[in-house]
Design a binder for these strands. Structure first.
Length: 685
DNA sequence: CTAGGGTTAG
């Protein structure tokens, strides 16, 4: 074997296992040995850097080359794509046209994938037409990529059509179309195709079984999933060595909320990979066992398996959901040290984490610095602005993203609409709502209408809101009726309220939240008998609402509180400081219990609980005990799984005034920033 | 030498 071939071989294994440091060493050796101008070696270098999420270094190699072929171009595109930078790949594709290099099936395939990544069907269709004209469409790799591209662009009909007319269908074509149906939520169609392919003599591989299992988890079809699990064993695919299938199986059990079974499968896997670890970590986090989830992440890192963008985004989103500021910062600083930390999806989850933890400035700074922003990046930031009460900023960003040719999707519209309605920007709301209805790329969803119902509801236009629901071209969901019911409550409209309540119980009669809301409406109107009746039905049905829980992070440790909780070691001091604060507020501004506030809210907390100390108050108390009493100290940040109660809201407002401190409370709905006796939510929450 | 299907973020 010639010497250059040995280098090539080494580089390819670095590519395969994403070994960046070794790759760099070989790169240095290659230069030293005088192979720096070799075409194939340079192509391998580009590929290696790309696979290691370092397309910046791949680009350096590419730029220095005197002679480039189609492989050089395609490998560079692949590298950009790896990092989530689909646009860079496509712009290279257009640049190829002005060189003497002709794209081949690999080039088309890579860029079809890029189009799928961007999710813009028009882009992909253009490329599809080009494939058709150049005859590349018939090549299986390209055809399969076209199926996948349409699937990612949510064009399942086009994907199916491509599959139907393909002259050379292979296993991957079947896998692609099955995955497409699964992705689209048509799990039963996937199971049907799974059967048909076997009838046609195609042998499913781990990908097929993986997609089919995923279809089962989407359908919540635990039984069918278990059947596949069983047939895996009888067909001779032992879980222990079939890492990919096993990971899908872990995912199935996680989605079906069978964590013990998931863990059992996970434990059986001999060579766990990133996907297996990601699936189980997400599983624990979803069940609320974040300690175990973070512990598994630590164990995962100790294995030395390469941490990729997927697992990092997942971990970061756990930190965001539980508002673990310190842990989130730690993971963030960890992402900076590894190449896949540059991936767009990781950066998106970092921004989201800072926003959900209430650190708006950090989020803004990081967002600005992001070299590549996709539609998710913008949407995250718009959502964050909305939740923090910065409606104007949200709109500004929405306009800015479009001026940069980023196409908003339905989630983006949802973000901007909810930002407008939450911050009372009435005209802007309607403007963007009609923008949405006139945008041919967007299928309006019930959630969009719900934003408008919320807006009308806030303004007290309850009849109009109800009309909107009844006349929209979509089936109303429980959620949109809940929005309207909430508005009826604020405006104390018993007539529409009880009507909507009746509808709600018909369509969603097993959700405790509905009963609590309805009974509160009756309670506030003094209709005690009706109130009792609703509570009784709830009791008979055995429904219990979610317990209110608040938490605060102090010195990287999270302290949880339930209402009336006395389990915290500092309970006595917490009670003491809360009493002291109440006295102080009474003296200085007349705050006290028994005062009926304009928006007295017992919606999420039952009557018994409201007599005890609410969880958010306890968490605030701990924050005060742990150094929060000094003036000019850090902002106190508290989090609650439900909505903050009106009484506590008033209490914190007072605190912010007498202590001259800032408090930020994230509840299930939005952020409340209290400063000098005023809350950013403007009392409507 | 480059590629296609499975896990992630709003």
């Amino acid at each position: 074997m010639a010497e250059w071939q040995r280098f090539a071989k080494l580089l390819r294994s670095c590519s395969k296992y994403s070994l960046l440091d070794q790759g760099k060493q070989i790169h240095a050796a290659v230069e030293k040995m005088g192979f720096g101008l070799d075409l194939i070696i340079n192509n391998d270098l580009i590929d290696m850097y790309g696979k290691c999420s370092r397309s910046d270094m791949a680009c350096v190699v590419f730029d220095k080359m005197l002679e480039r072929n189609v492989v050089s171009w395609t490998a560079l595109m692949g590298g950009y794509l790896q990092q989530g930078n689909a646009k860079a790949s496509l712009s290279l594709f257009y640049r190829i046209g002005s060189s003497e290099v002709r794209p081949n099936e690999f080039t088309f395939s890579t860029n079809l994938k890029a189009c799928g990544f961007l999710g813009i069907p028009e882009n992909g269709m253009q490329l599809h037409v080009l494939c058709l004209k150049t005859g590349f469409e018939d090549i299986p790799v390209v055809g399969n990529s076209i199926i996948d591209m349409y699937s990612k662009c949510r064009r399942i009909e086009e994907a199916a059509q491509m599959f139907d007319i393909m002259p050379y269908r292979n296993l991957i074509s079947w896998n692609a179309i099955i995955a497409a149906y699964t992705h689209e939520g048509h799990g039963s169609k996937s199971l049907l195709l799974f059967q048909r392919m076997q009838e046609q003599g195609e042998i499913p591989d781990e990908y097929t079984l993986g997609s089919t299992l995923k279809a089962c988890s989407g359908l919540g079809a635990l039984q069918e999933g278990i059947q596949i699990h069983a047939s895996l064993i009888t067909r001779g695919f032992p879980i222990s060595v079939q890492t990919i299938i096993a990971s899908a199986l872990v995912d199935l059990y996680v989605k079906c909320r069978r964590l013990p079974e998931a863990r059992q499968v996970f434990n059986q896997i001999e060579r766990k990979n990133v996907i297996s670890w990601t699936a189980i970590i997400v599983g624990y986090a979803q069940e609320g066992s974040l300690q175990e989830a973070m512990d598994l992440f630590r164990q995962f890192r100790e294995t030395g398996i390469r941490v990729d963008g997927f697992v990092l985004s997942s971990i970061m989103s756990i930190c965001a959901d539980f508002a673990l500021v310190e842990q989130g910062k730690q993971v963030h600083s960890y992402t900076i040290k590894i190449p896949s930390g540059l991936d767009t999806s990781v950066s998106n989850s970092v921004v989201d984490m800072y926003l959900k933890c209430g650190l708006t400035e950090e989020a803004e700074r990081y967002f600005e610095e992001m070299p590549v922003k996709n539609v998710v990046s913008w949407t995250v930031m718009i959502t964050g602005y909305g939740k923090h009460g910065y409606g104007k900023n949200a709109i500004h960003l929405f306009n800015k993203m479009q001026s940069q040719n980023i196409v908003p999707d339905e989630v983006t519209y949802l973000a901007v609409l909810s930002a407008c309605s939450h911050t009372g920007l009435i005209e802007e709301s309607w403007e963007h709502f009609s923008g949405l209805l006139n945008d041919p790329r967007i299928k309006p969803k019930v959630e969009h209408y719900a934003c408008m119902v919320d807006l009308l509801g806030r303004a007290g236009c309850l009849k109009e809101a109800k009309n909107l629901i009844e006349n929209m071209p979509l089936e109303p969901t429980a959620g949109i009726w809940q929005t309207l019911l909430g508005a009826c409550r604020v405006h104390r409209d018993l007539e529409i309220g009880s009507e909507v309540g009746g509808i709600l119980l018909r369509v969603d009669g097993d959700n405790p939240v509905n009963y609590v809301m309805i009974s509160n409406i009756y309670a506030e109107a003094g209709e005690w008998r009706e109130c009792e009746r609703v509570r009784e039905v709830m009791k008979v049905k055995g429904l219990k609402k979610e317990a209110g829980r608040s938490w605060i992070e102090i010195d990287k440790e999270v302290h949880f509180f339930y209402g009336g909780d006395e389990s915290h070691p500092l309970t006595e001091r917490i009670r003491e400081v809360l009493k002291k604060m109440e006295r102080k507020m009474k003296e200085e501004m007349g705050y006290g219990y028994g005062v009926k506030f304009a928006l007295h809210d017992v919606e999420e907390e039952s009557k018994e609980e409201s007599l005890r100390v609410h969880s958010e108050k306890l968490a605030i108390g701990l924050g005060l005990v742990c150094g929060g009493l000094e003036k000019g100290g850090e902002v106190i940040r508290v989090f609650k799984n439900l909505r903050v109660c009106g009484d506590c809201h008033e209490f914190i407002k007072g605190l912010s005034k007498v202590l001259k401190k800032v408090f930020v409370v994230r509840d299930a709905n939005r952020f409340h920033r209290f400063e000098n006796g005023v809350c950013s939510c403007g009392n409507y929450w």
